[in-house]
Computed example of a mutant assay.
Amino acid sequence: MTSKEEGATGTTTKDVTAVNASMPMGAVTLLAGYAKDKKAAADKDTKVSLGVNYALSKRSTLGADLFKADQGANTGTGLVVRMRHTF
């Protein structure tokens, strides 16, 4: 997926390319994601994530994601844990 953002003068301010994947394996689904802004410096504004979903039932899942984000001087890592139920 590619996304572009233009400023008021019509110049491209962001040019983001993202790749996401999921691989179901029974009740477990592995997740991966990568995004990079091509207009940013070579090693900045990059996001990488890995995750897993576990199907508790047909409509309920438990999941977790690990991510790393490099945005200019701000670099961070994190963990997201979630439970989802659809009605």
Rank of each mutant, 00 (worst) to 15 (best):
G7H: 05
G7L: 02
A8V: 09
T9L: 02
T9C: 00
T9E: 01
G10N: 02
G10L: 02
G10E: 02
T11R: 03
T12V: 14
T13C: 05
T13E: 12
T13A: 09
T13F: 08
K14R: 14
D15H: 07
T17M: 10
A18M: 15
A18L: 06
V19H: 02
N20I: 07
N20Y: 13
A21Q: 05
S22M: 13
S22H: 07
M23L: 14
P24L: 10
M25K: 09
M25G: 01
G26C: 04
G26M: 04
G26Q: 05
G26Y: 03
A27W: 00
V28P: 11
V28H: 11
V28L: 13
L30R: 04
L30E: 09
L30T: 11
L31Y: 07
A32S: 11
G33N: 04
G33Y: 06
Y34W: 11
Y34R: 09
A35Y: 08
A35S: 15
K36M: 09
K36D: 14
K36F: 07
K39E: 11
A40E: 01
A40S: 14
A42N: 12
K44G: 13
K44A: 15
K44R: 15
D45V: 12
D45P: 01
T46D: 15
T46Q: 13
K47E: 13
K47C: 08
V48T: 12
V48C: 10
S49F: 09
S49G: 12
S49P: 06
L50R: 00
L50C: 00
G51V: 03
G51R: 05
V52L: 11
V52T: 13
V52H: 02
N53C: 07
N53Y: 06
N53A: 11
A55Q: 03
L56I: 15
S57D: 01
K58P: 00
K58R: 13
K58N: 05
R59M: 09
R59T: 06
S60L: 04
S60K: 06
T61G: 05
T61V: 08
T61E: 14
L62K: 03
L62P: 01
L62H: 06
L62R: 10
L62Q: 08
L62T: 07
A64G: 12
D65H: 11
D65Y: 09
L66I: 13
L66A: 12
L66R: 06
F67Y: 15
K68S: 10
A69I: 14
A69K: 15
A69N: 15
